[in-house]
């Protein structure tokens, strides 16, 4: 694959964002590589219904 990029005029008036969270990225500029990874675990057994048991200590 041959990929040619011509960067002509780029003029943005307003960027409006509510939240940038959990290792997210807002980039105004150029970069060579971006690598993003995310895991979010909320399995069935993470819903604990029963008498309160504290999590294991640090």
């Amino acid at each position: 694959m041959n990929f040619h990029v011509y960067n002509r005029e780029l003029f943005v008036e307003t960027i409006k964002i509510t939240g940038v969270a959990s290792s997210s990225l807002v980039l105004v500029g150029d970069t060579e590589t971006i690598q993003l990874a995310s895991t979010f675990d909320t399995p069935a057994e993470s819903l604990i219904i029963g008498p309160f048991v504290p999590l294991s200590a640090e």
């Binding site: 780029l10 943005v12 008036e13 959990s22 290792s23 500029g29 970069t31 690598q35 979010f40």
Partner: peptide, 29 residues
């Protein structure tokens, strides 16, 4: 690259606002 205004309420948990160029970016959550 011209931007007039950037409006953000919150940046949290190892997140990043970057104005300028970079080379290698790697983020993990």
């Amino acid at each position: 690259i011209k931007v007039n205004k950037i409006d953000i309420i919150g940046i949290s948990s190892s997140s990043l606002l970057h104005v300028g160029n970079s080379r290698n970016v790697s983020m993990e959550a």
